[in-house]
């Protein structure tokens, strides 16, 4: 079984978000980047399934410039076998999906996993685009993934419940908790990751279909209005008469 796990390089979850002076780009200065937390579910589950199915491999793919390599190495340290970096700044979801689909087609992967969405652009788009580009099913978002031979059984979250879905390989799934407990690299993993193959490939032609014109921060909160705990009922009056939300 050949697994392809797509990882995105995103600002750490505690990052204070700021933009360049023209508000056209995210300000990377001084920001720590991590593997997108949703993608960690995809990566760990792929490694678990590899361990349970002898002869399987896990390849990690990232669409990004050289500054994403520390996190690609981290994915190798967690347990992926090799990695591919498509050397291009990710222009938009469509562009990224085209790169992943091209690599997936060439490598004939059986299972393509990724996180539900990235925590920076919150697109929740790439999974379906890759599936459609390859003409294979997509299950999104998946909370559980089990494999038996070439058949996968997944739990797909729907609003208010879940669906049990079976698909045959090849397929795409976008992953979220509680699929597994994401692993962190151990010392042995970090040592072996240094020599694992990381192939850099050029981007295939592809145009973005969307462009960011401007970023903006949400309006600042006015500050909290405190109500005395002994007079808690007053809050309900404020919510009805002042905030008008109940």
């Amino acid at each position: 079984m050949k697994f392809l796990v797509c990882i995105s390089n995103v600002p750490d979850t505690t990052t204070k978000i700021t933009f360049t002076p023209d508000n056209k780009e995210f300000n990377k200065a001084g920001v720590q980047f991590v593997i997108n937390p949703w993608d960690e579910y995809a990566l760990t589950r792929a490694i678990e399934l590899k361990e349970a199915n002898a002869g399987s491999t896990v390849t990690v793919i990232n669409v990004g410039e050289a500054d994403t390599e520390p996190n690609i190495r981290k994915a190798l340290a967690i347990g992926a076998d090799d990695a591919i970096r498509v050397n291009a700044a990710p222009k938009d979801a469509f562009f990224v999906a085209e790169q992943i689909a091209a690599v997936a087609k060439e490598g004939a992967y059986d299972v393509i996993l990724m996180g539900k969405e990235s925590i920076d652009y919150n697109g929740f788009q790439v999974h379906g685009m890759v599936g459609e580009l390859l003409g294979i099913p997509t299950v999104a978002p998946a909370m559980k993934l089990d494999m038996s031979g070439n058949t996968a059984t997944l739990e797909r979250e729907i609003e208010g419940g879940k669906e049990i879905v079976s698909v045959n390989t090849p397929f795409v799934a976008s992953c979220q908790q509680p699929m597994c407990e994401p692993r962190i690299p151990n010392m042995r993993g970090i040592m072996t990751a240094r020599t694992k193959p990381l192939k850099v490939v050029p981007a295939t032609a592809g145009d973005a279909r969307t462009t960011v014109a401007e970023f903006a921060l949400p309006p600042k909160k006015q500050g909290v209005k405190l109500i005395d705990a002994d007079n808690a009922g007053e809050l309900i009056k404020l919510l009805r008469n002042e905030a008008k939300v109940i």
């Binding site: 999906a97 919150n122 697109g123 788009q125 379906g128 459609e132 997509t138 999104a140 969307t210």
Partner: peptide, 22 residues
């Protein structure tokens, strides 16, 4: 929604459309 994002992303390829979520 989970349905909207699943279908919308596939449709964007099939119909060669620009997609914006959220």
């Amino acid at each position: 929604s989970n349905i909207g994002a699943s279908v919308g992303s596939r449709l964007s390829i099939r119909l060669q459309a620009s997609l914006a979520t959220n």
